[in-house]
């Protein structure tokens, strides 16, 4: 990066560190922070969408649909989320390949599962083996994103279902007395009001999501945990920057990174909460009013 970095072996002290911390692999690590943030930015709205779908389904009057929604909400209660993180990507991957296999290679007669193997024809490989590395990375990331959305969608569904139920019953009854249908009452009365009740739960969910991002590492994505392990391990003299095992420092750095991330989010949510509470007939709103009057 810097001009004086051409011969790292001759450097010492601060100059060595300046060069070390800006080496190509370290820059890759800094970029991988973006992977984490990208996952957060994409997973939050899609989890919300999954959650909304689940919550609406759980309210349905059609019994099988309601069971499906309730089952979805309950699924994260009994089974560790990490099981889903491991299961969903590989299951979806095999599902897609199997479907492609059936449609594209209908002349194959051998079974797809042979003993300990899962074999599909070449045209059914996802992504195609000729695809560039970027496509493979994007595909893996997409599967990881799906797993995150599914698991956190279940948490969000729980929060949103609670928020929908928290809208005062009298409001819905008034809407019904005006002759609104169930759908109209939901759209015009429940939907606009539920967010006030959902916000604390959703901000909590964001924290949970932030703290779940290191699990990307388990899905084979080159995230910051991967780089911390790679870069921190001891490097012999054949490397440009030899050093002993520094993984503990790298993980300390990660710990601080995540603490800052959660601390920052907490501050932002505090401000938003305050902002939303102004003029509201809640305890927080009352406290704000009193503070203003004093």
């Amino acid at each position: 990066m810097f001009a004086f970095c051409t011969d790292p072996k001759s450097l010492e002290g601060a100059a060595w560190f300046a060069c070390y911390l800006t080496s190509g692999t370290h820059l890759a690590m800094y970029w991988s922070v973006l992977t984490v943030l990208l996952l957060l930015v994409l997973a939050a709205p899609s989890a919300l969408a999954f959650g909304f779908g689940g919550a609406v389904m759980a309210r349905s009057h059609v019994l099988p649909v309601a069971w499906l929604g309730k089952g979805y909400i309950a699924m994260v209660r009994g089974v560790p989320d990490i099981v889903f993180f491991l299961f969903v990507p590989i299951a979806v991957d095999q599902g897609i390949e199997y479907l492609l296999h059936v449609t594209r290679c209908s002349d194959w007669t051998e079974p797809v599962r042979r003993g300990a193997d899962f074999v599909v024809c070449a045209q059914a490989k996802m992504p195609p083996s000729s695809a560039p590395k970027l496509a493979h990375d994007a595909y893996a990331f997409g599967l990881a994103l799906l797993a995150f959305s599914l698991v956190f969608g279940a948490f969000a569904a729980n929060t949103l279902a609670g928020a929908m139920a928290a809208v005062p019953r009298a409001q819905v009854e008034t809407a019904e007395s005006y002759g609104m249908t169930r759908a109209q009452a939901f759209r015009r009365v429940i939907l606009p009001q539920m967010w006030v009740y959902a916000l604390p739960g959703l901000s909590n969910l964001w924290m949970i999501l932030v703290k779940a991002t290191p699990l990307l590492f388990l899905l084979g994505i080159q995230d910051i945990v991967y780089w911390a392990r790679e870069l921190g391990g001891s490097k012999t003299q054949i490397y440009a920057y030899p050093h002993p095992d520094w993984r503990v420092w790298y993980f300390l750095g990660l710990l601080v990174f995540y603490l800052l991330l959660t601390w920052g989010s907490e501050r932002v949510f505090g401000l938003v909460q305050n902002r939303l509470s102004v003029g509201q007939a809640t305890a927080a709103g009352e406290a704000l009013r009193k503070a203003g009057a004093a």
Binding site: K211, P214, R229, F251, L254, L255
Partner: peptide, 14 residues
């Protein structure tokens, strides 16, 4: 405030 996963890694290396 920090992920348990990172706590495990950090503790192990320590």
């Amino acid at each position: 405030g920090s992920p348990l996963f990172i706590q495990f890694f950090f503790a192990y290396e320590t």
